[in-house]
Amino acid sequence: MSSKPDIYTTKRRGRITNMLFTSACFLATMTCIFLLVLLIWNIIIQGKGWLSWEFIERLPSRFPDKAGIKTALWGSIWLISLTAMFSVPLGVGAALYLEEYAPRSRWRKLIQLNIANLAGVPSIVYGILGLGLFVRALQLERSVLSGALTLTLVVLPIIILASQEALRAVPDSIRRSAYALGATRWQTVWYQVLPASLPGIMTGVILSLSRALGEAAPLIAVGAMAYVPFVPERLTDEFTALPIQIFIWTSRPQEDFHHLAAAGILVLLVVLVSMNAIAIFVRHKYGKKIRW
């Protein structure tokens, strides 16, 4: 007979390979989900009894049953707000320059390579840089400002890369159409390219800020480990942050502090999940309108 395949019979080998590959992928997914659920379950069990309104309202204390997370939560809110204020305009601006303005030269390639490398530098290195630059050289001391500037260093390369990606996803036909209608470069970027890439940029920004929220190492390097019994009110005030408070509690020998740490992690997770939810919402709301 001819060598044409019969449409009703699959080759046996193909079928087995297919099955094996599907099961392997399924197994990998399940392993990840299982580990994640286990982790969160463990934390919920540990922190359950300790998570309460008072826990969020109280200042830190040497006594576990009086200790709260207020200063750390507010410290983190300060840090993230300031970091966003510094890193978003800088990062999006740099991405706009690199994608829309910079001539395609070797110089640009070099900068691009550097940014990609900076995004991979461990955050503790930025912490040490922040200690030398902001805390010592600029004499900002162990202030929220120092902390936020250091976190800005950490997230800046990521925000630049994510924004560049979003800008690159805007088809050139949009730019050409705008120019053909007599738009200047600024008008093209401001009225067409930027709005079209906004969902992508927002997602990148929120994801990198979530990362900043969980960073402890660079903050410890700039000296945020001190006992701070008050909520920062000025840029120059000392501060503590959620991941640092959690770290301090877990390193205590008493069992009760470990429960406190678990409760702190839950608070951190809630903040993180809400930030990611915003990212998804933005993507969904504005992304739907844009199809190329």
Binding site: I174, A178, A180, L181
Partner: peptide, 28 residues
């Protein structure tokens, strides 16, 4: 370019409303 309008081979509307598409030129 304002005096010489151009229509491309592949239609390239902006990902915006019909009104915003047509009013872009006069707006800028």
């Amino acid at each position: 370019r304002k005096r010489i309008g151009m229509v491309f081979q592949k239609s390239t509307p902006f990902p915006k409303s019909i009104f915003d598409n047509v009013s872009f030129g006069p707006k800028i």
